[in-house]
């Protein structure tokens, strides 16, 4: 009984994924590309760096990286606080 429920759920999930996979846009043709085109054309001239991905991460989307760095810092604070008694 349990196995048949799992099997049915699995088949349903696979069918759902296949259905959406066939409805996807072809590879390399995103629906809206104005933003991407802007980055590809102007990133090198505006920031002076060759790696466009890094310019997006550290320049155009700097706030996101600030959050990432803060998350890492908080994780370290949490781990040090968790093991403060054990490590003594």
């Amino acid at each position: 009984m349990k196995k048949s429920v799992f099997g049915f759920a699995f088949l349903f999930f696979v069918a759902f994924l296949l259905l959406s996979a066939f409805g996807m846009r072809p590879f390399g043709e995103p629906s809206f590309s104005e933003m991407d085109d802007y980055y590809i054309e102007n990133a090198q001239a505006e920031t002076g760096a060759n790696n466009v991905v890094t310019t997006i991460v550290f320049d155009y989307r700097g706030f996101d990286t600030l959050g990432e760095a803060t998350v890492l810092f908080t994780a370290v604070v949490g781990i040090v606080a968790l093991f403060r008694e054990v490590a003594k």
């Binding site: 920031t47 060759n50 890094t54 550290f58």
Partner: peptide, 10 residues
Amino acid sequence: NTGGTVTAMN
């Protein structure tokens, strides 16, 4: 020697 703050922040 390019990149500005991108390099420094890296």
